[in-house]
Design a binder for these strands. Sequence first.
DNA 1: TTGCGTGCAAAGGTTTTGCATGGCA
DNA 2: TGCCATGCAAAACCTTTGCACGCAA
Lengths: 147, 147
Amino acid sequence: MGKYQTEQKKVLVGFMKEHPQEQYTAEELSALLEERTPAGGQAPGKSTVYRLVSELSENGTLRRFPKSAGRGWTYQYHHAEGCSEHLHLKCMKCGCLLHLECDAGKELIEHLLNEHGFMIDNEKTVLYGLCGACRRLTIPYVKDKNL
Amino acid sequence: MGKYQTEQKKVLVGFMKEHPQEQYTAEELSALLEERTPAGGQAPGKSTVYRLVSELSENGTLRRFPKSAGRGWTYQYHHAEGCSEHLHLKCMKCGCLLHLECDAGKELIEHLLNEHGFMIDNEKTVLYGLCGACRRLTIPYVKDKNL
DNA sequence: TTGCGTGCAAAGGTTTTGCATGGCA
DNA sequence: TGCCATGCAAAACCTTTGCACGCAA
């Protein structure tokens, strides 16, 4: 698996690379590729999409997240380097993925290791919450409640 | 849902409470309750297990985690209080759940909010990695490789 | 007594798999 | 040319749902 560079794989990876902020389920991805691939292009079939997202998640091209509600997973293009060195923040509202490359993040990682003996896996760990932009949208409600 | 205190619910919650460090899928839980409930006890059927873990995860009695490999979810008893105030660490090997109630955790939470505008959701977030005990087991291998 | 919770079995949705064909190197 | 990847359809898998009955309050 993964030895050949097929047209279907190029189409899928190309699409994901063009939408690095978006996350899709295998099902959505299959449908999108089907409808968006220009005539003559070779959109992968559904089972191939499943096989590809699985392969690409393992080799690091994509990243897999549990769906915030319900069951299943979403996939997102994984473009950054050095991602095993820092923590990641994912907004539950807009889905954006932030790389926490500041000292505070590094300090926590070291603190966990030195003081708690816990070695964090940055590839697997995601901090969920609300990003600044999405949080601002909710502030009016908060204000009304005198909070 | 949740108005009556049925025998089946008591059995399920009782079992989970007795195994606060363990995590089970709905399927596993159903099988375990089936075989472990003493004769005369009322083990819930499979569909009831699904309904119960869903209800109990929503009201906070249980906590739901994405399975580390493959699809699906695992459930674990959620015994602590004030869990929305601190981060949690989960060992990917033994499955233990640690509550990070120290200052370093609090500082990161505040840092994220003040410097990055990101409001973390501590109920949803879990930091994955290896706990001290499990890490020690792997150290011999690390040493052999001169790391 | 009331109506919620349960169990069974069937339905539903998603993901995987077997096998023949087609394509990449 | 040889082997890998794909596509289709069927199978497998997991979870939810409909309905009639039993039990908690």
